[in-house]
Simulated scan of single mutants.
Amino acid sequence: MKNVAVLSGGRSPEHDVSRMSAENICKELVAAGYGVLPIVITRNGRWFLQDVHESVAVIRQEAERGVSIHPGDGLWMNGEKLAVDIVFPVTHGTEGEDGRLQALLELAHLPYAGSGTVASMMGMYKNLAKDVARILGIPVTPSILLSPDDIAWLGNDEDAPFPRLFTSFDISPDSTGTARADLFLGVLQEKLGKSLLVKPEASGSSVGVTALPQPGAEIFLDAVFMAYIPGERVLVETFIPDVMELECALLEAEDEIVTAGPGLVRKPAGEESILSYDIKYSVHRHATMEYPPPIAREEAEMIATYARSLFSALGCTGYARVDFFIDPSGKPDARIFFNEINTLPGLTDTSHWPFLMKCKGLEWPQMLLEILSRGFEAYSLRHHESDR
Rank of each mutant, 00 (worst) to 15 (best):
M1Y: 11
K2R: 05
S12D: 14
P13F: 14
H15V: 15
R19M: 11
M20Y: 07
A32D: 05
G33F: 02
G33D: 01
L37F: 12
P38A: 02
V40C: 14
G45Q: 08
G45L: 08
R46A: 13
W47S: 08
V52A: 15
H53E: 15
V56G: 13
E62D: 15
R65C: 11
V67H: 01
H70E: 09
M77S: 10
G79R: 07
E80Q: 14
E80G: 08
A83N: 12
V87N: 00
P89G: 01
H92D: 00
G93N: 07
R100T: 11
R100H: 10
E106F: 04
E106W: 07
L107T: 08
H109T: 09
Y112I: 06
S115Q: 08
G116N: 02
V118F: 09
M122H: 11
G123R: 07
G123S: 10
L128G: 00
A133E: 03
L136E: 13
S147P: 02
D149H: 11
G155R: 15
D157M: 03
D159P: 01
A160Y: 03
F162K: 07
F162W: 08
L165I: 15
S168N: 11
S168E: 14
D170C: 06
I171R: 07
I171K: 06
P173H: 11
S175E: 13
T178K: 14
A181V: 08
A181S: 14
F184D: 09
F184G: 10
G186A: 04
V187S: 13
E190N: 02
K191Y: 06
S195E: 03
L196E: 04
L196V: 08
V198E: 05
E201D: 14
G208Q: 01
G208L: 00
V209N: 00
A211R: 05
P213Q: 04
P213N: 05
A217N: 07
A217M: 05
F220A: 05
F225S: 04
Y228F: 13
E232L: 03
L235P: 00
V236G: 04
V236I: 14
I240V: 09
I240F: 01
L246D: 09
L246Q: 07
E254W: 02
E254N: 05
I257G: 01
I257N: 00
A260Q: 08
G261F: 12
G263F: 03
G263P: 02
R266H: 13
K267D: 04
K267C: 06
E271P: 00
E272M: 13
P292F: 13
P293C: 08
P294H: 06
P294I: 06
I295F: 07
E299H: 11
A304D: 04
A307M: 03
F311R: 07
S312Q: 13
L314C: 06
C316K: 00
T317R: 13
Y319M: 01
V322G: 05
S329H: 10
G330V: 09
G330M: 12
F337R: 11
E340C: 06
I341R: 03
N342S: 12
N342A: 12
G346T: 01
H352M: 15
H352A: 14
W353E: 03
W353Q: 02
F355L: 05
L356N: 12
M367Y: 02
L372D: 03
G375T: 05
G375Y: 06
F376K: 05
E377V: 04
A378T: 03
R382A: 13
H383L: 12
H383F: 10
E385T: 12
S386F: 04
S386M: 04
S386N: 01
D387N: 12
D387W: 11
